[in-house]
Each structure stands twice: as C-alpha cells, then as structure tokens.
Design a protein around this nucleic acid. Sequence first.
DNA 1: GGACAGGGTACAT
DNA 2: ATGTACCCTGTC
Length: 290
Amino acid sequence: MDATDTLVVEDFNLAATLNSGQVFHWHREGEMFFNLVGDQPLIVSQPTPDRLDVHAGGADLARRYLALDHDLNKIRRTLPKGDKPLRQALKFAPGLRILRQPHWECLASFITSSLKQVSHIRQISLTLRSKFGTKIATIEGVDLFSYPTPEALANAGESALRACGLGYRAKFLQQTAALIADGAFDLNAVAELEDAAALEKLCELPGVGPKIAQCSLLFAWERLGMFPIDVWIERALRELYFAKARRQPSSKALRDFAWKHFGPYRGYAQQWLFHHARTSGIFSRSRKDG
DNA sequence: GGACAGGGTACAT
DNA sequence: ATGTACCCTGTC
C-alpha cells in the first residue's frame, strides 16, 4: 500500500459527499471509504473535519475526484441571499461537494437509476461491476471491479443485463453501450460542447432524458449549472418555496424558477437541497394540511 | 399477500 | 403538453 498522504481540508464532508446519491459504489469499513476511481484504487478517511487521509491512490487523485479545488466560499457567495431553506440545507451538510466522476460509469449508472431507490442502484452497479468489469484489487477483503466498458456491456447483451435486475433499463443500457462501443456516439466529444449542446447531445442516447443527462453532466462533466429535477427535488421545491402558493406551479414553471433563483452554481444548490430533503426526514413527518 | 412506490424515459395521443 | 407502459424489488 502507498504511503498515506494527509491533506488539510476546509468545507469538506467525505461521508456526506459519497452518500449523497451522486455515486453508488463506495464501500465503508469503519472510517475508511474505498473503491475505484476508473481503474485506480482509492482509500480515504476523514479522522477530523479539517483532515483527509489518503491511504492509497494518492493526493492528486483524491483532490481531483473529490473536487477539493472547488471554491465553496465563492460558490456560496453566488447563492440567493435570504433563502432560508437553502441556508438550512447548507447548515445540514456544508461540506457536501460535487464529484468529478469518470464519464462513462456515471452516465451508465444513471441510466440504470430511473424509478429506483439509491440502495437498489448501488446493488445493480456492484453486480454489473463484478460480472462484466475487471477485477483490479482486493481491499478489506472486498474484491473491487472496474465499471464495465461500453464494449463489455454491449457484448453482454440485453438478457444478461436483465439478469442483473435492470428490468426495462437493460435494453437502454445495452443500446447506449453499443452506440459508444461502435463509435457511433463519441462520449469524449461531449466535453467540448457548451452546456445546452452537451445536454441535447446526451439526450440522443437511449434511456437518457433530461434528468439523467443533467445528473451526468453535473456529477461527471463538472457542469455546475445543471439542475436535475427528480421527484425528491420537485417535492422539496414545492414544499419549501411554494407551500403557500394559491396554485402550484407547473413543472416547467418550477424549472424556470430554479434556473433563475439559484444562479450559476445551481447544481450545488440542488445537491444540498436534495441531500437535506432525502436524509433529514423533513418529508417523512406529518403532511396533514397538505 | 397484493398493492404501492422508488433520483424517468419513450411513445402515443 | 399530458397520459401511460415499461421491469423489478423492498415495504406495508
């Protein structure tokens, strides 16, 4: 194992970041979080709020993947003043960052995510890795497999993917994998496009609509202005910002609101609100007066 | 035990 | 622009 690197960190919460539903394959053993970034093993722990220990994988990889270079002070200054719900969400997990994930594994994971719970997405992700990925390392007794390449998933075929519990998503994943494996769709070209064009481009893929395209752009392509709206965020926005509205805004009106209200780093606002809504139980309490 | 819903998308009106 | 089918799993 490599020598441990110790990084001084500020505004960073490792557990919240890895458990915030942007990534699904991390293992935890005590204080240690471990798995692969692409095909690189990474083992990290955060013994105190201001310290990150990188036990394997190296400081550079950790800094890049965990987006430790994002200037959260600057980002917070762009957020709307006097937005109480957002302020509360920030207080709940101020160090929740948006990762820089490898493009393909992020996109593919979100293709398998539609109408599923986070725990199930994780289960599918780990199964796909162990069946169609490459074994890279064993850490704490856990075998770590890289995310299967587009070629591997394209060749696996729809029925083999169904056997992993993907249901109707199997066809989407297989088809998208095939388009990329064939070279009919150039995933690398997406990085060169402006946000709107990149979004449109990703939506050409089977099983990829605006929600999944925006998740991928936000969590893998570092497009921090994306604002994916799922059932949780939609519910959260309605309850937090329009509870007293005489008439509930349409979904489109809600999108427009979010786009204008939260500003250029709305992706961060989305992630903080999502994490808060999902984890804090604010929506599991009585909703009698709905 | 069935019904229900879970980080949507594709396709038909 | 709105409605519905799609597959599977855990939960009540």
